[in-house]
Every structure is written in C-alpha cells, then in structure tokens.
Deep mutational scan, measured.
Amino acid sequence: MTVLPKDIPGDSLKVTVGTANGKPGDTVTVPVTFADVAKMKNVGTCNFYLGYDASLLEVVSVDAGPIVKNAAVNFSSSASNGTISFLFLDNTITDELITADGVFANIKFKLKSVTAKTTTPVTFKDGGAFGDGTMSKIASVTKTNGSVTIDP
C-alpha cells in the first residue's frame, strides 16, 4: 500500500482569532474563523484551546458560528481559569461536516476595569488537533492569535 501526501505544500487550514475593542463593562464579541476549508477536504472534527487573561476578560458565552451545522449536538465549549476549550465533531461522520469558510465560534467577553488603554492577547495554547471530512488528521493548520483592547 502506498500512502501519498494529501496536502499540497503551502496549503493549510487557517484558524484565526479576531479582535475587538471596548470600554470597561462593555461586552464584545471576538470571532474565531476558519478559511481554506474546502482545500483541506472539509473539517469533520477539531479540538483546540485559547488562552486569555482572566483578570482583564470575563467569558460571558461561547457560541457556535454559522458554519457549524447542528451545533447543539456537534459543538461544545467550556471556559475557566483563562482557557477556553473548543470541540467539534460531526456526529453523523459525513452529513454535518464544516464545508465552508466563515465564523466557527463567537466568544463574548465582558471587559474588566483598567486604568490605561490595554491590549490583551487571545492566543492559541498547545494541544488539540483538526481532522478532515474523512477524519484524517489535517497536518497543516495555520493559527493566528487575536486580541481585545480595553480603553477606559
């Protein structure tokens, strides 16, 4: 049996954390987006972790974005102690894959008090994996961190 590389060099799934701005007490939304989904033969499963400074940001909610089908079954998240974990699994293993680019999740943060303008990162942590529509590992994932700026 011969195994051929399935990824064209330079191609990767792009996962990007967005940015937001606000004043202390505001609730802002930071999107997590996927790009080049079709090039990577869709997404059938993924789990990953984001870190944030809990002294500056309070997670209000984490909701599935419009590219997630049947989110009540296929999407899960949790947030505590400065870490947000995400889990997606197409429970049907074929019919509810992520097949389009767009917003995977929206994180709502309540901004805490600061004395001066502060930009705090929302960054990928170690761990996690992504699988394509056949549940094979997506070897190349380009992750881009985001941030939230609090301006009193």
Rank of each mutant, 00 (worst) to 15 (best):
T115G: 06
V103C: 06
T144Q: 06
I8G: 15
G51Y: 11
K39H: 11
S80V: 14
F104E: 04
F124L: 04
V141P: 02
D126W: 15
A35L: 09
A20T: 11
A20E: 09
L56K: 05
T142L: 08
I93D: 00
T94F: 15
K143A: 00
G82K: 15
T115A: 07
T134Q: 05
T123M: 14
T94W: 01
D101A: 06
I67L: 12
P31Q: 11
A79R: 15
G18W: 12
A100P: 05
A71H: 11
N21A: 14
D7A: 08
N91W: 03
T99S: 06
L56C: 10
V141T: 07
T19G: 14
F34K: 10
V68T: 10
I67G: 08
M40V: 08
Y49V: 03
L50V: 08
L4K: 10
V3N: 11
S76P: 01
G18I: 12
G127E: 02
T115P: 06
G102V: 12
S140M: 09
S140V: 14
L50W: 12
A129Y: 00
I84M: 03
T2P: 10
V32C: 09
P121F: 03
K110T: 03
N106D: 05
N81V: 15
A54S: 11
V17C: 14
K143T: 02
N145L: 05
N106C: 03
A129E: 06
N47W: 00
K108Y: 05
P31L: 11
N74M: 02
L89E: 00
N74D: 06
V37T: 10
G82H: 15
M135S: 01
F124G: 01
V141E: 00
I138P: 00
K137F: 00
F48E: 04
P66Q: 10
I67H: 14
G131L: 01
F48A: 08
V17T: 14
D126P: 15
E96D: 06
S78T: 06
T27I: 11
F104V: 03
A35P: 06
D101T: 09
I107G: 00
F34H: 06
D95V: 03
G133V: 03
L57T: 12
T144F: 04
V62D: 05
V59Q: 11
I150E: 14
G133I: 01
T115K: 07
K117R: 06
K143M: 04
M40N: 15
D126S: 15
G25K: 10
D90Y: 06
E96R: 00
V141D: 03
P31T: 12
T92S: 01
V60I: 09
G25E: 12
S80H: 09
G82D: 15
Y49G: 00
D11A: 10
T134I: 13
K137V: 00
I84N: 02
G127C: 04
N70S: 12
S61V: 09
K117I: 05
V17Q: 11
K137S: 00
T16I: 14
G22W: 08
A105N: 02
S113G: 08
S61G: 14
L13I: 09
L57H: 08
A64C: 14
S80Y: 06
L4S: 10
V141R: 03
A116L: 05
P121G: 07
N145H: 03
K6T: 10
P9K: 14
K41C: 07
K23N: 11
A35H: 13
I93S: 02
E58I: 14
N42E: 15
F124I: 02
G51P: 14
F48R: 01
S136H: 08
N70V: 10
T27L: 10
A105M: 00
G10V: 10
D53A: 10
I150S: 14
G25Q: 13
P5N: 08
S147P: 04
K39E: 14
L4R: 11
L89N: 00
P66H: 10
A35E: 09
I8S: 11
N91E: 15
V122H: 05
V17S: 09
V17K: 01
P9Y: 08
K108N: 03
F109M: 05
E96K: 04
G22Q: 10
S55V: 14
G127M: 01
A71E: 14
F109Y: 04
P5R: 02
D132V: 03
V3E: 14
G128E: 04
V103Y: 04
T94Y: 15
S136P: 01
G128R: 03
T99D: 04
S85V: 03
K137P: 01
D101V: 06
S136F: 15
A72Y: 13
V103K: 03
T27C: 13
F124W: 14
D26Y: 09
S55N: 12
K117G: 04
V3Q: 14
S147C: 05
G18T: 13
T29F: 10
V141Q: 04
I150N: 14
G82R: 15
T94R: 02
V37G: 10
V15R: 06
A100L: 05
K108T: 08
D26L: 13
S76Y: 09
S61F: 11
D63S: 14
N145Y: 07
T83A: 09
S113H: 07
V141G: 04
G146Q: 03
E96C: 00
G128C: 00
S140C: 04
L111P: 05
K41T: 12
K14E: 14
P5A: 09
D101E: 06
T142G: 03
A129G: 04
T118A: 07
F75I: 02
T149Y: 15
L89G: 01
D95Q: 03
S147Q: 05
G102I: 12
K39F: 14
T118F: 02
L56N: 08
A64E: 08
T33E: 10
L4Y: 14
K125Q: 02
T142C: 03
I150A: 14
V68S: 10
L97A: 15
V43T: 10
N42C: 08
L111C: 06
K143I: 01
K125I: 03
I138Y: 01
K41W: 07
P31I: 09
E58R: 11
A35M: 09
V37C: 08
I93W: 14
N21R: 12
N70Q: 09
M40Y: 09
T134W: 06
V15K: 06
P152T: 15
A129V: 04
L4G: 10
A139P: 15
A64H: 09
A64L: 00
A38I: 13
C46A: 01
I150C: 15
T29R: 09
D26S: 12
T92E: 00
Y49E: 02
F130W: 03
G146F: 06
A139M: 04
M135Y: 15
D126T: 15
G25N: 09
G133L: 03
F104I: 03
V60F: 09
N70W: 04
T119R: 11
V114N: 10
K117Y: 03
L50G: 04
V60S: 11
A72K: 13
K23C: 14
G25L: 10
P121K: 11
V141L: 06
K117V: 04
S147A: 06
V3M: 06
N42G: 07
F109N: 02
S80L: 14
